[in-house]
Design a protein around this nucleic acid. Structure first.
Lengths: 261, 261
DNA sequence: ACATTCTTTTCACTCAGTGAAAAAGGTTCT
DNA sequence: AGAACCTTTTTCACTGAGTGAAAAGAATGT
């Protein structure tokens, strides 16, 4: 009767794919699991996962805590740091973000474009209590956030067409959901040099963001967010623009001479 | 005659181990490589690496740039964020570090203990030009740095014995290299509640650091560094201690109730 | 003491992974 | 242009590494 297969029983892939599936089983929601959970989520036999996980543990890509539960290992983190996104962008950007944060004392964020959405690379919040609104690594829509719009506005026309052509999901009453309206908004961003978004994604939050340009290409966007509907966020526009410009210049320098100071 | 084998010709491991070897070939020094470089460094036949790299790329653990060079992929970074070290420690600590940094305007760092050395988890520098002295992810000696000493001093006696019993490499004239002297120094740290290190690791740098305690166990250390031999760094001790204590408290709260606010 | 769930070990089968070699592109010489 | 030397990609016959069902061993709950 109860023949319910719990998982799609992943159709026999290569060993490598299986190993990656084991790693991929861990998520933000469940960052640590027992062996059998791991097996269930990965859709693989326990014995197989047992072996694979053993090897991954040896390589420090996985680690087991006292109770025997698996979580991702230090190696994973170390290698994550070598990723271009982190190793370059974040590292170079940090001082600019910190200085900006020092000046405005609001939450400052850095995002890049990956595929069809933006990804938070860094987020500096002073509040020790505030729940994590937008985690680093989180993917956010290009059309409904200030950083997203800042990036999108300066992307190349072809890409803009692709995005405006896709369904634009609505998140709040203020979300822009028609290609027409979005294009108009992007025009404004290009004109002003920054994006301003009020409650388009998260109710109660306001943000401004400026694109980071390197040799005429958007590489990222820096944003300032506030979760209490501050209406005078624009007073920080000059600092924001300066931070974005500064980062752009620095990235250009480093691209020219990777060893530079 | 010239039969020189370039690499140890890694003795046929498991597929998984090979795949990890391919990933592991990338390093901070060489964060991107061509296929054949990858193969050479990993000590595997090109054809093999070709296949493995293909699969890793599919899983977004590797990525190829325009020129066909491989570097670590976004997935690697995303998963690194789920690591306990990052996902918990760093995320929770950030606001404390930022506030501390705001108050003292010097470089602030966060380190944890891993194996027999300390590892930088975060480092906040304001200077946009200063060369990256100590990269995030870098391993540093427990006996010769302020953060290291702060951690070591409050580790359990057995561990302290292990460390003091190991050879203590000298880095500068001021490095403490005898077990006796180190123990004396650790006593002082325990007494004062913070560590103060002057040019023990990097010439020209001074640092103070305080341990982060959770339920009587050191979980990390927060440090303030200066590279210009500032001699009044101790004026920040109160803020430093408060930041460390605050983080400790917060970590304890979260350990008790993981969902807390 | 029994039931249940999780971890670890074993083992015979076979198919996935292997790597040498050749083909196909690229780059840098003279 | 042609030669010498890279690197990347494809092919293919061989075989041992990886497989997963099943059973044994731990651990925990009722």
């Amino acid at each position: 009767m109860s023949e319910a297969r719990e998982f799609p029983k992943s159709t026999a892939k290569s060993v490598t794919a299986r190993a990656l599936a084991v790693l991929g089983a861990l998520s933000a929601q469940e960052p640590s699991m027992t062996l059998s959970q791991l097996a269930r989520v990965a859709g693989l036999p326990v014995a197989t996962v047992y072996r694979l996980a053993g090897e991954l543990e040896e390589g420090r890509f996985l680690q087991r805590d006292a109770s025997g539960r698996y979580s991702l290992g230090v190696r994973m983190w170390e290698m994550g740091l070598l990723t271009p996104v982190h190793g370059h962008m974040r590292e170079v950007a940090m001082p600019f973000l910190l200085n900006l944060q020092y000046e405005c004392r609001e939450t400052v964020q850095l995002a890049v474009c990956d595929g069809v959405d933006a990804v938070y690379i860094e987020k500096l919040t002073l509040d020790t209590k505030t729940p994590v609104q937008s985690r680093i690594g989180a993917r956010i829509p290009l059309h409904a956030t200030a950083v997203g719009q800042a990036i999108l506005a300066l992307s190349d026309p072809g890409f803009i067409d692709v995005i405006t052509g896709m369904p634009l999901p609505r998140f709040t009453d203020s979300t822009v959901t028609t290609p027409r309206a979005l294009n108009k908004m992007l025009d404004q961003v290009r004109e002003q040099g920054f994006a301003h978004s009020t409650e388009e994604y998260v109710p109660g939050s306001t943000a401004i963001a400026a694109p980071v340009m390197v040799n005429g290409k958007v590489e990222a966007a820096i944003g300032i967010v506030n979760y209490e509907l501050r209406d005078d966020l624009e007073v920080f526009v000059p600092q924001l623009i300066e931070a974005a410009a500064g980062l752009g210049r620095r990235l250009k320098e480093l691209a020219a001479d990777p060893q530079a100071d």
